[in-house]
């Protein structure tokens, strides 16, 4: 008997929850805001689904109802990806140590 591929995906999912659990507990509390903005950015990897949806039209007709929703999702996810990573970068650049010469 073969194992349904769903079980493998479920395994990845469950193990990732555990990885997430331990990784996030080790995040220093002072970086919790950047943590939120970066998780925002990475959860926008949903753009891969949006791209498949957007490309689902045929070559004569790029836009059908399904692909239009895909394109809208692409735009939304792109706002998040660029916005999320850049604002995280901006925040992280501000965290500085005490200057030695003081």
């Amino acid at each position: 008997m073969e194992i349904d591929p769903l079980i493998f995906r479920l395994s990845i999912f469950i193990l990732s929850i555990f990885v997430g659990y331990y990784v996030v507990w080790s995040v220093t509390p002072s970086l919790h805001t950047p943590l939120m903005s970066v998780t925002n950015a990475i959860s926008s990897v949903i753009i891969v689904g949006a791209i498949i949806a957007g490309l689902s039209g045929n070559s004569d007709n790029v836009f059908n109802t399904s692909s239009i929703f895909g394109f809208l999702a692409i735009a939304l996810a792109a706002i998040n990806i660029f916005g999320g990573f850049l604002v995280t970068q901006r925040m992280l650049a501000m965290y500085k140590k005490k200057k030695k010469d003081k």
């Binding site: 949903i46 949806a53 689902s56 399904s66 929703f69 895909g70 999702a73 939304l76 706002i79 998040n80």
Partner: peptide, 28 residues
Amino acid sequence: ELVAGFHSLVGLAAVFVAISAFLNPEAF
């Protein structure tokens, strides 16, 4: 506010992808 706004976009993007997949499951 920014983070709340961004969350709403992720949520809506997920809804749109699901709609798209529901309407055109062949593509997926």
